[in-house]
């Protein structure tokens, strides 16, 4: 009359039912063992979808703008994680730096922004050809308006190409320091 599967199912239900009933009436989830109330560092206190964040300089100029399809804030780590962040930063001369990456972290005090995964920095100067910098990771330091990586990086501009291991970008001065193993290739005029 009852197949063996059904019998096994009934037995399983018979075992679980009392536990479910007790748990349901008691109204409390399983008590956390006292003394381990420390929140899990991976816990999020807020998140945003399609977030757009704008930062202004003390003088009221647009300093930088961040866009991301998803931002999650981790209070215990004092930072936010950004999915596929994109940023744009105007330069004093009217040019523009645009950056993107697969992921990024912004420290709450804005002292540091880390970008990782297919990082691209596009420089559209006021005059002269555009340039593109690509690398695997890049840390930006807004207070000093510089960026730095120790990873290999490639700069391409107007058909010219320069490769390096490690670099520093000084946005205000529009200056790039290539730290080691520099290989450049230029077109003949």
């Amino acid at each position: 009359m009852f197949s063996s599967t059904r019998i096994r199912l009934l037995i399983a239900l018979a075992i679980i039912a009392p536990v479910l009933i007790f748990w349901g009436f008691s109204g409390d989830t399983l008590q956390q063992p006292s003394g381990s109330s420390k929140e899990n560092a991976a816990s999020i206190d807020f998140f945003m979808h399609d977030a757009r964040t704008v930062y202004w300089s003390p003088e009221g100029d647009l300093a930088r703008e961040w866009q991301t399809p998803e931002l999650k804030h981790y209070p215990l780590r004092s930072r936010s994680e950004l999915l596929e962040p994109e940023t744009s930063m105007p330069t004093p001369e009217g040019g523009l730096y645009k950056m993107r990456a697969n992921e990024g972290w912004i420290v709450d005090d804005q002292s540091q922004i880390q970008l990782a995964g297919d990082v691209e920095v596009h420089h559209n100067p006021q005059s002269g050809p555009n340039g593109v910098l690509t690398t695997s990771s890049l840390t930006i330091y807004p207070p000093r308006n510089i960026a730095r990586t120790d990873a290999p990086a490639k700069l391409v501009r107007d058909g010219e190409q320069t490769e390096t291991v490690g670099l520093e970008v000084y946005f205000d001065q529009q200056r790039i320091e290539l730290l080691s193993n520099v290989q450049g290739r230029y077109n003949a005029p």
Binding site: H123, L155, T162, R175, E177, L178, V182, Q183, G184, R185
Partner: peptide, 13 residues
């Protein structure tokens, strides 16, 4: 084309 190699470099855009 011109090829360059060096220990380090500084680009002033």
């Amino acid at each position: 084309p011109i090829h360059i190699s060096a220990n380090s470099a500084s680009i002033n855009e």
